[in-house]
Amino acid sequence: MMAWIWSGTSDPMIARLNTLLRHIPVWAVYIVGALPAPVWFYLGVTGGLGVEPIKALEHELGRLALQFLVLGLLVTPLRRYAGLNLLRFRRSLGLLAFYYVCLHLLVWLVLDVQVPQQIWADILKRPYISIGMAGFVLMIPLAVTSNNRSVRRLGAMWRRLHRLVYVIAVLGALHFAMLVKGLQFEPFVYVLFVLLLLMMRLRIFGFFFGLGVRRPGGVGESG
């Protein structure tokens, strides 16, 4: 909301990057960000995803959802500690994460599980699915209130509501980590990354690591 106060940073490289970013229209992020889904679907239909395309597509969509969640969580620390301003794109990152979660869920329902009775049984009985489902449900109010009117109408409430994304990201990463067999590397990278990004928001983190903070005066953005 106070992005307009933002005037720059002492680092010329970052400043140039910020100028460049200002020239990227937000709609381009939506288009480029949404593109992998039809491409992956096309690959799945044409045999490009290996001999078991259902799981491959499902997992890739889930992975993309997590990646966009992590990107969304990166916006604030990048701004606070590196002076890089991606705030304009944060809404698109969040909505793209929601888009991939919806597609991931759809592939799971329609192509993977198929049996309606088993869907409910899975949601209730299988902790990793319950957790993933909880993450999806929590994303709905955020997606619904992602428009400018809601931001204005809800005021301070809006910011508090959208802190739910912290919970959602943790649930998403856990969902991934709990689903794999054995101690696998990749899901733990996401868990670590999400936890680290959340830690960076704690006041105590700023206290210990805040020396290098490149924070423009007057910007109290806490999201």
Binding site: V51, Q118, D122, R126, P127
Partner: peptide, 10 residues
């Protein structure tokens, strides 16, 4: 963590 009642043929 998952049902074993059915399977997908590769």
């Amino acid at each position: 963590r998952w049902s074993q009642a059915s399977e997908r043929k590769i």
